[in-house]
Each structure stands twice: as structure tokens, then as C-alpha cells.
């Protein structure tokens, strides 16, 4: 389970950004979580609840936005159905994964500045 080390990295980065901007409070942290990011949303949330106590994120809401994975043909753009072989049924070219479907991104932070 690597969600704890990811949350640790997230909290540190948020605290760093808040300090840089002289924030007095952090209200929300928005994260997008790709279906193929290798991260489980529930575990991530549990790790967040455990880890944020005593940090600058203690009162911040975690907003997790799921990003679904979709495959399409690299040549003709045709959609490849879920669960199918990742080759275009029409032209035989290999598939390409949709953007951000394999990423775990810190999208934005809502903070209070004096």
C-alpha cells in the first residue's frame, strides 16, 4: 500500500505552497485520480484522514475527482471498447490511453491569504 507515502508527498507539497504564499488557512485540496494511476480512492482518502492531523491540511477538504480510462486508435481515433484487445478493430493500429487516465495530479489548492 503506497497511498500513505503519496499522501505524505501531497501534504508536504500543499504546506510548502501555502507557506510560500503566506496562507493562514487551507480550505480545500483538489486531486484528480486516474483510473489507471495505480491509486485506490478509498485507501487514498483513509490515508489522508490519518495523515493530515497535525499538519497544515488538518482542516482542509480533500476533493478527489476520478478520471476514467478510455482507449482509442492511434491512427484513426476510433474508440476501443473497454476490455477489448487494445488494437483498432478497423485499421489494426495500436490503442492510445486517454489523457490523465494514468495520472495522479494535484490540481489546485484553495487557501486563505491575508
Amino acid at each position: 500500500m503506497h497511498e500513505y507515502s503519496l499522501v505524505e508527498a501531497l501534504v508536504r507539497r500543499v504546506e510548502e505552497e501555502a507557506a510560500r504564499r503566506g496562507a493562514t488557512a487551507i480550505h480545500a485540496v483538489r486531486v484528480s485520480l486516474g483510473e489507471l494511476s495505480g491509486v485506490d480512492a478509498e485507501l487514498f482518502r483513509t490515508a489522508w484522514e490519518t495523515f493530515r492531523a497535525g499538519t497544515g491540511c488538518a482542516r482542509a477538504e480533500l476533493a478527489l475527482a476520478p478520471v476514467a480510462a478510455a482507449w482509442s486508435c492511434t491512427a484513426c481515433g476510433a474508440a476501443i471498447p473497454r476490455g477489448a484487445v487494445l488494437r483498432c478493430a478497423g485499421c489494426g493500429a495500436p490503442g492510445r490511453l486517454s489523457e490523465r487516465a494514468d495520472a495522479l495530479l494535484l490540481e489546485s489548492i484553495e487557501m486563505e491569504v491575508p
Binding site: 507539497r13 490540481e107 486563505e112
Partner: peptide, 13 residues
């Protein structure tokens, strides 16, 4: 205090 949204769009890793 003012509520500011800070856009980052960066990888957590």
C-alpha cells in the same frame, strides 16, 4: 482574509 484558488496541475509524485 481572501480565499484564493491556486492552480497547480502537477504530479503528486
Amino acid at each position: 482574509a481572501e480565499l484564493v484558488p491556486v492552480e497547480l496541475h502537477e504530479k503528486i509524485l
